[in-house]
Simulated scan of single mutants.
Amino acid sequence: MLGYRPFHISELLPHGVRQMQALEEAMVASSTDTPYTRAELDKLFGDYDCLIESPCYLGASGIQTYVDDPNIKFILTQRSPESFAKSLSGSLGCYYAKLHEWPLTAARVCDGFVWELERMFRLMTFRWSHGLHPSDPDFRSALEQSYLEYMKTVRSLVPAERVLVLDLDKGFGWEEICNFLECEVPEEPYPRSNSMAEFHVAAEVVLAPAVRKTMVLLATSTAALVGFGAWYLQRLRK
């Protein structure tokens, strides 16, 4: 189990614009008559052993693509709709909103990575919120409704014998997961962490270089404008 190479959305962030664009194209295509094929998804996700969270952004077509492979198993994490909405609005929704605030509004214009990140976060946020912005008063209720719809979709598409439902509110560990996957239970404890706090730390680390770059560009531009203004005024006086 510890040897598995899991793919999570965060895997894209260190690599840059091209990889994010590929995921964006897959998300957009999932809502059309020509969703990504298994070969295209395999090319997108590389040689990872499992996908974490990513399939939920590919809609019913993405789930069906993997259901068609009888060797693939699914783990569905269950929680209260209110808990899900709180988590998503505090992580993805929060940073999508921040990308429209200073200084990230300036960074979006000055840095191609931040520009693409905003587009990817917008697609992900709107997939769950039915197009509502995090500031909309109905945002959380839309997330709750989407969560219930998603759980229903997964259960309707995936055969019961190929899906393990884990209740996040009750808790779970290696035993349930490893027994389902038919692999050995690791000796080390199951990792417990504050995923929302980790998301915020990771986001700050990823965005910090772009913010620094933007501040340098703005400072340089301001200095150039001030210098030009001083020169122009001096010329007028002569």
Rank of each mutant, 00 (worst) to 15 (best):
Y96W: 14
H8M: 13
L44Q: 00
T222L: 08
A85N: 00
K86G: 07
W128K: 11
G3D: 12
Y150R: 01
F7Q: 05
G131D: 01
D47L: 09
Y36S: 00
A219G: 07
D167E: 04
H15D: 05
S129A: 13
M20A: 00
S195E: 10
R140N: 11
D33Y: 14
I177E: 00
E101S: 08
C178M: 01
D47M: 15
T214A: 03
V109M: 12
L2Y: 07
P81W: 03
E101N: 10
I52N: 00
G90A: 06
S195Q: 15
L92T: 03
R38N: 11
I75Q: 02
G93A: 11
E184L: 15
L44A: 00
P191C: 10
K170D: 02
E204F: 00
R162Q: 07
A26T: 03
S141M: 04
R79I: 06
C178R: 02
W102K: 14
N194T: 09
E188K: 05
G90N: 04
T105E: 01
A97D: 11
H15P: 07
L104I: 12
E204A: 15
R18K: 04
L51K: 00
Q21I: 14
V114T: 01
C178L: 02
I72Q: 05
V165M: 05
Q21S: 09
E182T: 14
D69I: 12
N71I: 08
K98A: 04
V163M: 03
G229Y: 08
G16E: 06
T125Y: 09
S30D: 10
L123S: 04
L13S: 00
M27Y: 08
Q78Y: 02
R237I: 07
H8W: 15
S31F: 08
G229N: 12
A60F: 08
E182Y: 12
K98S: 04
M196I: 06
K238P: 15
V163H: 01
S195I: 06
D169T: 02
Y232P: 14
E11A: 05
V216I: 11
E11L: 06
P189M: 04
L157M: 06
Q19L: 07
D49I: 08
R235Y: 05
S146L: 05
A60Y: 07
E24F: 09
H15G: 15
G131H: 10
A29K: 01
T222R: 07
